[in-house]
């Protein structure tokens, strides 16, 4: 964790966006209809109620109803449906 803290400070010092420096996912939400997740590490689980997406250090869980994966690209996932919650684990 110290290493990460270091990196964060460095990025703040050099004014480099965190997601680039720390390899963090960038999540864009369109209300509760769509979620774009950039910089992911693959899907771990997918059901209409839950989508778990692997990210650097952990996973991201989207819960909702009637979820579908609109498209999957090597570094981007688009989830569509009625999104209720997004949780980092």
């Amino acid at each position: 964790m110290a290493w990460r803290e270091w990196k964060k400070r460095l990025s703040e010092f050099l004014e480099i966006p965190n997601d680039v420096m720390l390899n963090l996912p960038r999540v864009v939400l369109m209300g509760n209809l769509q979620a774009f997740i950039e910089n992911h590490r693959g899907i771990l689980e997918y059901t209409p109620q839950i989508v778990r997406v692997g990210i650097e250090e952990g996973e991201l869980e989207i819960t909702g109803e009637k979820l579908i994966l609109r498209n999957i690209l090597p570094d981007e996932i688009c989830v569509e449906g009625m999104i209720k919650a997004i949780t980092f684990k």
Binding site: R70, N71, I72, L73
Partner: peptide
């Protein structure tokens, strides 16, 4: 685990869209 299939396809640059779960083991 169809997710594995999808992950592998995505990492190899195969474009997939409109992925919907059909049942316990199928997509």
């Amino acid at each position: 685990a169809p997710e594995k299939f999808i992950n592998m396809a995505a990492t190899r640059g195969i474009f997939l869209w409109d992925i919907a779960r059909r049942g316990e083991q199928s997509m």
